[in-house]
Design a protein around this nucleic acid. Sequence first.
DNA 1: CTTAATTGTATCTGATTCGATCACAGATCA
DNA 2: TGATCTGTGATCGAATCAGATACAATTAAG
Lengths: 138, 138
Amino acid sequence: MNTRFAVATHILTFLETQAGRPASSELIASSVNTNASLIRRLLSQLAKAGLTSSQMGTGGGARLARPATTITLLDVYRTVNDAGDVLAIHRQPNPRCPIGRHITAVLQSRTDAAERALRTELARTSIADLAADIARSA
Amino acid sequence: MNTRFAVATHILTFLETQAGRPASSELIASSVNTNASLIRRLLSQLAKAGLTSSQMGTGGGARLARPATTITLLDVYRTVNDAGDVLAIHRQPNPRCPIGRHITAVLQSRTDAAERALRTELARTSIADLAADIARSA
DNA sequence: CTTAATTGTATCTGATTCGATCACAGATCA
DNA sequence: TGATCTGTGATCGAATCAGATACAATTAAG
């Protein structure tokens, strides 16, 4: 499993605490404890998904593009995960075997339901919730 | 994502259709369309988890160790996945940053809830259900 | 008792993925 | 003009994975 979901969530939560001031990738990287290039790559994805916006040049950086109450963990998940890769399906069962011929479709419908449950739960938490939790911890 | 969950489920469903007759790793491998060694590795895990039992020697092979109605996709998931690796957490945020210091715990509690939802859904499907779905498709 | 079949496990290999790192063109502002 | 940023491309080493081969141990059949 990669760490993009966790890092992207960290980024967004960090931006929320910046109260609208743009944050540079260097600054964010120092909070996440990784390098700025990786942060910029994730920010690029987040911006394409409409969750953040960035400005180049002196004094530039990234900001949330929407109120943190409207950005959920499901939005983050959708941004950084290819569709349905939590419970991958194996490639090519033997089509001459009755099990092999049907197992993929049958199993897929069940794993789809499971992933749907995961997503529903993720949708219940917003970046604002996380920021509030952190404020309470601090 | 690896394919162990899907392959292990395939194996168990295959065994269910064998009606108690032991199936060799070669036979199973031909249905899954992979090699026997991989199947044996998975069967070894499944046996340790109490889902299958194997017998060496001529005429040997693997069987379900319990009725298929009592083996759920959650059992399979537990067997082949390390704990909580669906939404991994990144390793070492900067502890000198308020966000970095708290994000891991705060996020973990939310991803735990999501993974719990996933598991609950997986528990609703048994190997017998899959076998029945396949019988209906055929 | 001998032989064939089968598991369980170790080892190796090529492909793929991932994160870290460096580099640099383009944009922006003072 | 010069300093500061983003966006993106390229490369690298580590890790993971599936495929493959090998072989000792076990079991049943003849």
